[in-house]
Amino acid sequence: MALSQELYDAILNGNAKQAHTATQAALATGVQPLQLISESMVPAMDEVGRLFEIEEYFVPELLLAGRAMRAALDLLRPLMTASGDKLSTKVLIGTVKGDLHDIGKNIVASMLEGSGFEVIDLGADVSPAAFVRAVEQQQPQVVCMSALLTVTMPAMKTTIDALTNAGLRSKIKVLVGGAPVTMQYAKEIGADGYSENASAAVGLVRSLLAAA
């Protein structure tokens, strides 16, 4: 049983308005934000992920659940900032230089966000220098890179090299993905992980962080 069943159901059903209302109601009873996240929101998103895995949910249901989660988080964040609490992990994501394809990257970003990660989306056609700048400024634990074209894949290596040269590589986990990318390629360029699809990417981020 979730701490707030109403909030749990709202997220599961992708109802952002209901999630907002349920969060307000829960806070009014004195529930702490982190407790609400860990005992209602994360379990709801875990269930959403499970339903997606068994093909009961498609991406729209998944993203709507993420949107409902964000509606709740929007209320909780100011309270958490005031109390010094933080969301667990910051993930930086982008499509590499020369590549304008962003739909796969967007799905991964939404799924990570829906799973409770703080996601900084750099967009598409992101240069190695822009990745380096963002890592310096945002100090994420994870960087995810996407490429759809064989001719833009090499930009993944260039970006990893740039992170290494900037002295940042050892501070982060780097994940890569995209249609032409393979596990072997990920290893060759020195990435920490490769994911074949968006839902596996969430599990991969979790497992890499757990192993760190």
Binding site: P60, D102, N106
Partner: peptide, 9 residues
């Protein structure tokens, strides 16, 4: 179209 498709809108 991309976001509408992804959200099933």
């Amino acid at each position: 179209h991309d976001p509408a498709l992804m959200y099933g809108d």
